[in-house]
């Protein structure tokens, strides 16, 4: 029996990272999978209310901006909304938030705050578990 859960760890905060995380998450959710994303360290950028509008491309790759526009890719805020609409659950890492002085209000609505154990409990019978 195939697992009906997909567990994703988002540990990086750039624009490319965001696309990798949210494309896989929305595709999985659209395929009737139960999806949770654990956002930790720089990954918290991806769901930060202001930060998610200003995600950067890796140094030297800025010329891809044109490609994104030409390919008509959805924006990250659009993908975040889409993911939540499809039932993807976002968990923000409590420890990272404490270190960075962030509170739940700094993030998009509807997230949960939790520790690594919360995520591990979900991920223990998820396949695949992906890290970005």
């Amino acid at each position: 029996m195939m697992s009906e859960k997909v567990a994703i760890i988002a540990a990086n905060g750039g624009l490319f990272d965001a696309y990798k995380v949210f494309n896989i998450a929305t595709a999985a959710a659209a395929s009737e999978k139960e999806v949770q994303i654990f956002f930790t360290f720089e990954g918290l950028n991806l769901i930060h209310k202001q930060g998610m509008h200003h995600l950067e491309m890796p140094a030297g790759k800025e010329h891809f901006a044109e490609g994104f526009e030409k390919a008509n890719t959805p924006t990250i805020p659009e993908l975040v909304e889409m993911a939540q609409e499809l039932g993807v659950k976002f968990i923000a890492c409590q420890m990272t938030m404490d270190v960075m002085g962030l509170t739940k209000e700094d993030f998009v609505n509807g997230i949960e705050v939790g520790g690594a154990v919360t995520f591990i409990e979900f991920a223990k019978n998820a396949a695949p578990t992906l890290t970005f």
């Binding site: 494309n23 929305t26 595709a27 395929s31 390919a71 008509n72 959805p74 889409m82």
Partner: peptide
């Protein structure tokens, strides 16, 4: 005109 993952969504 929509790019991945929007057609599937």
């Amino acid at each position: 005109g929509l790019a991945c993952p929007m057609p599937v969504v």
